[in-house]
């Protein structure tokens, strides 16, 4: 009788542990990469509408709804297509959605746009570019291109102060 009780208690503990593990959200395997990395710093010239949409995108991505986040971001890009922050954010979402090659191209677009208008300070341009290279580094790593990942990582480092 006592054995049976012990058995039930053990089984219950085992079950609860398994359930707890199963309920946890799947973790991203890239070191240092979490859903919070989706945070972006919009530039000083970002309009109210875009800020509101960025906020919506952030809320959606926190809830894990990447496609809703992308939809909000697409609207933001339609309003401010030259805003590199938005493209960088999009790149981050794709990286998080396990689409590294798309992430690389979007990050390159953000790079191409950074400083295009020439109004922002060199420091903030470099900080954004550094973020872009970091996304590219992560994406290259995911794709198994370790050498390219290292090159991108080095560029990211050289641009951050």
């Amino acid at each position: 009788m006592k054995n049976l009780k012990l058995y039930i208690v053990r089984a219950l503990i085992l079950f609860l542990t398994t359930a707890l593990i199963a309920c946890q959200a799947p973790k991203d395997k890239t070191p240092g990469w979490t859903s919070d990395s989706g945070e972006v710093r919009p530039g000083p010239n970002t309009g109210k509408a875009v800020l509101a949409l960025l906020n919506k995108a952030r809320q959606a991505s926190k809830k894990g709804s990447l496609s809703a986040a992308e939809s909000h971001l697409e609207r933001a890009i339609r309003i401010e297509p030259d805003n590199p922050t938005l493209w960088l954010y999009m790149a981050k979402l794709r990286l998080y959605a396990e689409k590294p090659s798309e992430a690389i191209n979007l990050a390159k677009k953000a790079l191409a746009l950074s400083g295009r208008g020439g109004q922002t300070s060199i420091a903030s341009q470099h900080s954004l570019q550094s973020d872009c290279w970091r996304v590219i580094a992560h994406a290259q790593q995911k794709m198994g291109n370790l050498k390219d990942a290292q090159t991108a990582q080095d560029k990211a480092k050289s641009l951050s102060y």
């Binding site: 496609s67 992308e70 939809s71 697409e74 890009i77 999009m90 798309e102 191209n105 979007l106 390159k108 677009k109 191409a112």
Partner: peptide, 25 residues
């Protein structure tokens, strides 16, 4: 096409922004 939903409004297919750099800017 941006998006296709079913008659009930469930998302069926999203057409995400796809870009690829082929020439240096």
């Amino acid at each position: 096409i941006r998006k296709v939903l079913t008659a009930k409004g469930e998302p069926l297919k999203h057409y995400p922004v796809k870009i690829q750099q082929t020439i240096d800017e």
